[in-house]
Design a protein around this nucleic acid. Sequence first.
DNA 1: ATATGATTTAGAATTATTCTAATTATAGAA
DNA 2: TTCTATAATTAGAATAATTCTAAATCATAT
Lengths: 141, 141
Amino acid sequence: MNNFDLNKYFLEHNLKPTPQRLTIAEYLLNTTSHPTAEEIYQAVAKKLPMPISLATVYNSLDILVKVGIIKEVFTEPNKVRYDKNITNHHHFVNMQTGEIIDVEPYELLSEQLVENYLLKNPKQKFKISNYHITFYGELVE
Amino acid sequence: MNNFDLNKYFLEHNLKPTPQRLTIAEYLLNTTSHPTAEEIYQAVAKKLPMPISLATVYNSLDILVKVGIIKEVFTEPNKVRYDKNITNHHHFVNMQTGEIIDVEPYELLSEQLVENYLLKNPKQKFKISNYHITFYGELVE
DNA sequence: ATATGATTTAGAATTATTCTAATTATAGAA
DNA sequence: TTCTATAATTAGAATAATTCTAAATCATAT
């Protein structure tokens, strides 16, 4: 998704495409990492001609999550990370570096998985709307 | 696991079985909920004859996690919860109430799941040591 | 030009957690 | 037992991430 699309996307979702919001969204859409609000603040502050405040970063991120252009990721204690990948997917956490890598979902398995949990827990009937897998491990060459 | 076992367990793991630690561990082992440190602090303060400080709760929880008698759960932003269930298992988050319910693992599926991710991501070779699934949804009767 | 409402801002407040340095408790040696 | 070394606990300060507040600024429609 490039800058032009972004502008359009904002308007379609009744969000004012302010420089701050656009720059934050653009930054997220152009990284494969999963930055924290603080990291986004640092990066975006360098790009913008005007100063930006942390509060704006938090506000903007909340809005972008709400309209569904980004997602929050919880893999560590007391740290929220943001993810441009809004497709249904999962995460691998490299326990040596802390790096978080997107992993593709496997739809066939998804169905089995959800059905299995429904069967396995007959006392409580879950209506599962989505799920997220966090894998922990290390990378080997 | 009852109180007597707990005492023994502590000694076996070279942990002094202090009243604070025992009460914290006992509280966790007797709940099916997934309390925060603050909730544990409140509950344990009522049970103990002497005062207890929050720092002790945090210290004790860290130690209990380290020796493997409890686990940390990250399902919400900026909140760590603790779980007595140290068997490999997953969580269902009731999106209406915030309640967290343990769900059993399904070992056959586990193998498939891990293998699938290895296949699906050929560029980076993961060595997966464990994984955790968070289901989101609601309970229906 | 101007009013209205939305957005952004700096900084204060809040929440969860960790740190610090002093005090207290515990287990083993005398 | 009493003593001693070490470990555990404490209150409160410090820190980190986030949210709140109220004022200032901006964009847009009149």
